[in-house]
């Protein structure tokens, strides 16, 4: 009997211990990897985790396939995701994400267009024209220049993706900035065919684009602004312009059916605050969806010219349409693969 009592006591104690351990909830989060994750960790996960008593389990992925599998099969293990805007827009339209509660999340400081019923903006980035100043003394200043191989000689590289590249092709062909959408696919591919023989390599990941300009013998490239900046900060020979940069933004969504919906909503309420977004900008050179980050006093004056969101840079660029890509992405990408194989 005594032994039984001890056993019961042991079970009770261990149960209460487990309960206490569970009080610190774990949130499963999918985001991009590498340096991006390191910065996300410092700017958001560590401070917000401490504040709300949350542990993080992070998986890195650029595509929403795992979320689709989870929602389709009804076995949701991921709570929070961060993708590119068109991925969030498409997922939201297809019912992959929970509706956001803007009485919990304060969207008053967020840039218009960077939040919707199903997603809220994180970083803002831009696909810019970059070049090696040692090889290109007279650099291209817009996509038409990039397409002009006679006036601007040198090896070229572009993103191996219909997204951004079709926009660039249309701008190079003389389509005005404000008439870009809906994209004229036939015209875009005709324009792309002109530059294709001069593209030495099509890069597939941000890290690869950096590798190409450092060691791959590429003189001119379309790449993400912070990736270009990080090559320069590491002492690489590179320069870039925000002129005709193609802006897209990262976004957070809550996976439909997660049991931790309310907690994740509170997490997002923290994530959109200017303090954290300012930290992320400071670390990454990406712009922030929160337009008030400068009010925190954390952003030094010399950082502004490097941000796609600065008052000077923003008007030079074009904001890509997440809605158009959510609707026509599959067709455009299939044609792009066909174009590359021809």
């Amino acid at each position: 009997m005594k032994r039984l009592c001890t056993l019961v006591a042991a079970v009770l104690v261990s149960t209460s211990l487990t309960l206490r351990a569970q009080a610190e909830e774990t949130i499963n989060y999918i985001t991009a990897g590498g340096i991006y994750l390191e910065n996300i960790q410092k700017a958001y996960l560590d401070p917000v985790g401490k504040q709300l008593g949350i542990k993080w389990s992070v998986e890195t992925n650029d595509v929403d396939t795992p979320v689709r599998v989870q929602v389709q099969s009804g076995a949701v293990t991921t709570d929070l995701v961060e993708f590119g805007a068109s991925t969030c827009a498409l997922g939201g339209a297809e019912g992959l994400y929970e509706k956001l509660d803007y009485s919990v999340i304060d969207n008053s400081e967020l840039a218009p267009g960077t939040f919707s019923d199903y997603y809220v903006g994180s970083t803002i980035y831009s696909m810019v024209i970059a070049w090696n100043p040692k090889k290109v003394p007279n650099p291209p200043q817009n996509w038409a220049d990039f397409w002009n191989v006679e006036k601007f000689p040198g090896t070229r590289s572009l993103y191996r993706n219909a997204f951004y590249v079709l926009e660039a092709a249309l701008l190079a062909d003389g389509v005005p900035k404000d008439k870009l959408y809906p994209l004229d696919l036939d015209r875009a591919f005709a324009s792309l065919a002109k530059i294709k023989p001069h593209i030495k390599a099509w890069w597939a990941s941000g890290a690869e684009s950096q590798q190409l300009v450092r060691e791959g013998g590429i003189d001119m490239i379309g790449m993400f602004n912070a990736r270009a900046q990080s090559v320069i900060s590491d002492g690489g020979s590179l320069a870039y312009t925000f002129n005709e940069g193609l802006i897209d933004f990262g976004c957070w969504s809550i996976v439909k059916g997660t049991p931790k919906k309310d907690l994740v909503m509170k997490v997002l309420a923290e994530f959109v605050k200017k303090e954290h977004q300012a930290d992320m900008t400071l670390l990454s050179n990406y712009g922030a969806a929160n337009t008030k980050i400068e009010e925190t006093g954390k952003i030094p004056a010399d950082l502004a010219p490097l941000l796609p969101t600065s008052a000077e840079n923003y008007p030079k660029q074009i904001v890509t349409s997440a809605e158009w890509w959510a609707k026509h992405g599959a067709e455009a990408k299939e044609r792009f693969d066909q174009f590359l194989a021809e």
């Binding site: 929403d64 390599a201 599959a330 299939e334």
Partner: peptide
Amino acid sequence: GGGKVTMVSMKIASNVQQYF
């Protein structure tokens, strides 16, 4: 391959992402 060489596995991956 610098994006100029597409093997079946690459196309399979992009189809999963394009058509879900």
